[in-house]
């Protein structure tokens, strides 16, 4: 019981680092990919947040990017092993094409997350705990406080440029 909760916390930290690094490396906070992402970014900006961080949050809403890739790859490893994770990468690629998203952040994140979840499975953290950890990770970005989260993402984007 307690060990399972500790495993979920460790998986949440690792998944958070993975999808933030992949998203910032692919330049998602630079601008909104579609017009809806710009609307969300300006709304977060009016509330007192950071514009670049708001753009990244809008991109997460409007197209399947590295966070969706991480979640679906963990689901695939839980259902069918490594082959399931690569199948999830193909599905994320199709979803990117459906949503008019030019980036390849989702597919790259899914492939990386497949191997990360498989390695964690050897280390004793199961794929089910990785799924719960990914849900907690997305909750900390989009669900607690938009202003603080967008300032944090804007700081990461400032380090990259």
């Amino acid at each position: 019981m307690l060990g399972e909760l500790v495993n979920i916390f460790i998986a949440a930290v690792l998944c958070w680092l993975l999808f933030i690094v992949v998203d910032v490396a692919f330049g998602l906070p630079e601008k909104g990919g579609v017009s809806g992402a710009d609307a969300i970014a300006s709304s977060v900006d009016r509330a007192g947040g950071d514009l670049n961080g708001g753009s990244m949050m809008g991109n997460i809403v409007c197209s399947p990017d590295a966070s969706a890739g991480t979640l679906l790859a963990a689901c695939g490893v839980y259902a069918a092993g490594v082959g399931g994770g690569l199948t999830a990468a193909v599905l994320v690629f199709i979803g990117n094409r459906i949503c008019h998203d030019p980036g390849y952040a989702g597919t790259t994140g899914a492939v990386l997350a497949t191997f990360m979840v498989y390695g964690l499975g050897m280390a004793g953290i199961t794929a089910a705990e990785c799924i719960a950890g990914m849900v907690i990770a997305i909750l900390t970005i989009q669900g607690i406080s938009h202003v603080q989260a967008s300032r944090l993402l804007g700081k990461f984007w400032g380090w990259r440029t």
Partner: peptide, 25 residues
Amino acid sequence: PDIMALFAAAAYFVGSTLESNAIAS
């Protein structure tokens, strides 16, 4: 825990993302 559930989750996720995209646009 089934391979078909993976397709169901991906279909739900892509569909709801498209829905959010349409509402925001």
